[in-house]
């Protein structure tokens, strides 16, 4: 689902500055539906892995308190223009998200 993820990686010296935006509701499971008074079930991304040229550089576990449409930024040393950055994410319902970009 590439369209669910927006990525940008820019080089500064030999460090890639990567910014990622994933479209996701990030529902906490703690909110009540105002009409039904029932809790809205939790639905959130809980694992995110970023790689540089296929090698894992960032391995994250998230809880429900990551903001809706999650944004995150990280930096990888030893990168050069043209290198491939990929992000794989999965939510608590098993839906997978994937994005990739080239370092520019």
């Amino acid at each position: 689902m590439d369209n669910e993820m927006k990525m940008r990686a820019t080089i500064q010296g030999d460090v890639a500055d990567v910014k990622v935006l994933i479209k996701h509701i990030m529902e906490t499971g703690l909110r009540k539906d105002p009409t039904t008074k029932q809790f809205i079930p939790a639905h959130f991304i809980n694992q995110v892995v970023a790689s540089l040229n296929g090698v894992t550089v960032l391995d994250m576990q998230w809880g429900v308190a990551v903001s809706k449409n999650p944004f995150f930024g990280f930096k990888v040393k030893g990168a050069k223009p043209g290198d491939k950055i990929t992000v794989n994410a999965v939510d608590n319902l098993g839906t997978k998200f994937y994005g990739e970009t080239a370092v520019a």
Binding site: V15, M26, T28, A50, L52, V55, T56, V57, L58, D59, M60, Q61, W62, G63, V64, A65, V66, S67, P70, F71, F72, G73, F74, K75, V76, K77, G78, A79
Partner: peptide, 22 residues
């Protein structure tokens, strides 16, 4: 639930993270 995120760095990732939290 106080824990928001746990981030592991490897293979050249700088010990830096930026994100938006609730």
């Amino acid at each position: 639930n106080p824990l928001v995120a746990d981030i592991q760095f490897s293979n050249g990732a700088q010990p830096y993270i930026s994100m938006h939290i609730k």
